[in-house]
Nucleic acid binder design. Structure first.
Lengths: 140, 140
DNA sequence: CTTTAGTAGACTATTTTGGTCTATTAAGGA
DNA sequence: TCCTTAATAGACCAAAATAGTCTACTAAAG
């Protein structure tokens, strides 16, 4: 398995660091890759994907880099995961009925659709701002 | 991806058919494989896994087969998915802190732990009896 | 003692994951 | 105008997971 692969995990770490270091200048991926111990060439592909999804903006050339396209409160983790994992839902047949050609009435579909909804509801409800909170106090 | 692979999908279809056809005699996998259009040898491996997990009981030899080990109301979909996908949680680092050796305080972990909980809560709350309801009326 | 059906485990093809490599384009600064 | 920095594009690749298959064996019914 994984619903959440290194793509989402690395991607979220990138976004949190961009949120932390947000300012007037864009942030180059090389520094993020070093700080986060993520292969830079791999990270650059993830950043390009997030840019295509409208989550990041970039500036090329010397002193260039990436910055968040929106405020952290306005970036849902769902949009990040969907962009990086490249799929709209848990099961293909949830979207595309043609895949489950055989049985007209699929009795397992409601279970998986419900799971899909539970996952999406959770991820939609968490923003980058929530994730980027410096310290989470578990003792409360 | 998938959190839910053919293992869980085929497995749930097997369990629903076993629930439907429950009676005095055990049900042979061959008939289920034909009805559900699932490769029999593959299905037999899934059934063996579900037996090892305590979800199914079996009888060998002619007229043998499988039956549910418990009532459908007492079989959670979570136990089925966990048995067949063979993992206890979404992320290894949720269970095993040794994997995330680098950063002492991981800021992405709360997000993924929350997702893991959302998934497990949902799957724990759905039983085979819920899944095996003959017709689900979506029009309500 | 033959047939049916579960059991055990090695084996395999395909896809996905997690990258790498090379080359190019754009912008800043000397 | 070069030189350097850094994003962009896309082919490439190794390892792991997925989705099976194959063979041989064991147990029970008739």
């Amino acid at each position: 398995m994984s619903l959440i692969t290194t793509r989402s995990r690395y991607g979220l770490r990138l976004l949190i660091e961009l949120a932390d270091r947000a300012g007037s200048a864009p942030i180059d991926l090389g520094s993020v890759a070093r700080n986060q111990d993520i292969p830079e060439l791999y990270l650059s592909k993830l950043a390009a994907t997030l840019k295509a999804a409208g989550v990041l903006r970039s500036e090329r050339g010397a002193k260039g880099g990436y910055r968040l396209a929106r405020r952290p409160e306005d970036i849902s983790i769902l949009s990040v995961v969907e962009a990086l994992e490249g799929r709209s839902s848990l099961l293909e047949c949830t979207d595309d009925p043609a895949i489950c050609a055989r049985s007209g009435e699929c009795r397992t579909l409601p279970v998986w659709s419900g799971l899909d909804k539970a996952i999406n509801d959770y991820l939609r409800g968490v923003s980058l701002a929530d994730a980027a909170v410096a310290v989470i106090d578990y003792s409360i």
